[in-house]
Computed example of a mutant assay.
Amino acid sequence: MFIPENIDLGQSEKYILSIRIEPNRFMFSISEPNYGKSFCLRDTTFSTEITLLNNIQRIIFDFNFLTQEFLETNVIIVSPEYDFVPSAYFGEHEKIDLYNRTHTDKAERILSNKNEKYSCVNQFKIDEDIYEFLSRSLFNPKYTHHTSLLVDLFGDKGKSVSLTSKMFLNFHNNLLDIICFKNSKFTHCLTYESEPASNLVYFILKLWEQCGFDQLTDHLYIAGSPEEEIKHTLQEYIKNINPVDTPREVYLWNEDALKAPLDLITLSL
């Protein structure tokens, strides 16, 4: 896994390292702030024969430059195991109990991302052993859930229609994120994993109905590549459907940047 010549890891402290972890995939980017041409993206899929922890350990040991001192070291956790909680109801000491009350798969370690703009906190599950290993191995890592980054990114999109409600769909790998805004106020964020197309259409339209969105005036934005069946069915019910464009700056960078997931690319903007 080579690194481009224009990235000098002998001066790692001037770069941003962002690691993105899925149950079956490991991805990282190295970028220099304000210099998009230096963006480097590498990824690999995991073996299903060994645990996620062992897969992560193998990669960190094989590519030990990831443990160097960087300007920033970000770890993005990609999973459906999270909750957005209003700030007024969030307590740092009660977050594990709060999470476990609403999830059957209990957590030993809960991390959180605060969002001051929308007065909420995203609390998300991470495996205890993975957290301990990454915290020991990486230089001062900052942990972020992928939906925390998407809420900020999507909240700034569609400003010209800020007086209407907006739903964003983000299709990536076998996941679908649905993020909703009511008159510029963040209201919902849900993630579905490994669901057939018919189920996803039902979930999308049911949430659209429950949110009280209008089929003629409100807007649906789609990121990623959904199945044609999903797009075709949604077009029968919702008038205003638009793609989520890649941030304009990225087109001036390189091919690696154009391949990066939206949540990861936001850390280099």
Rank of each mutant, 00 (worst) to 15 (best):
N64T: 10
V121H: 01
E72V: 08
N64V: 06
I76E: 01
F124E: 03
I126K: 03
D129W: 06
N64F: 15
L111E: 03
D97A: 06
D97F: 08
N122G: 05
R101H: 13
D97L: 05
E72C: 09
F84V: 03
I110L: 02
N115D: 14
L150G: 03
L111H: 03
N122F: 05
K95M: 12
H146F: 12
K95E: 08
T144H: 15
L98A: 14
E69M: 05
N74D: 07
L149S: 13
F90W: 10
F124R: 01
R101Y: 14
E92S: 09
P141V: 04
I130V: 12
L150T: 03
D105E: 15
N115T: 01
E92I: 07
R109G: 03
L134W: 02
L134M: 04
F139L: 01
E132N: 15
N64A: 10
T144I: 14
T73S: 06
F65L: 10
K95L: 06
L98K: 15
E94H: 12
N113D: 11
E72L: 11
F90Y: 14
Y99T: 00
F90E: 06
H145N: 02
N64G: 10
V78D: 03
P86T: 08
A88W: 14
P86G: 07
I96V: 14
H145T: 01
P80I: 00
F124D: 01
C120D: 06
V85W: 05
R101C: 10
A88Y: 14
E116M: 09
E69T: 10
S135A: 11
V78R: 04
A88V: 14
Q68W: 12
R109N: 11
F124L: 03
N100S: 05
I110N: 04
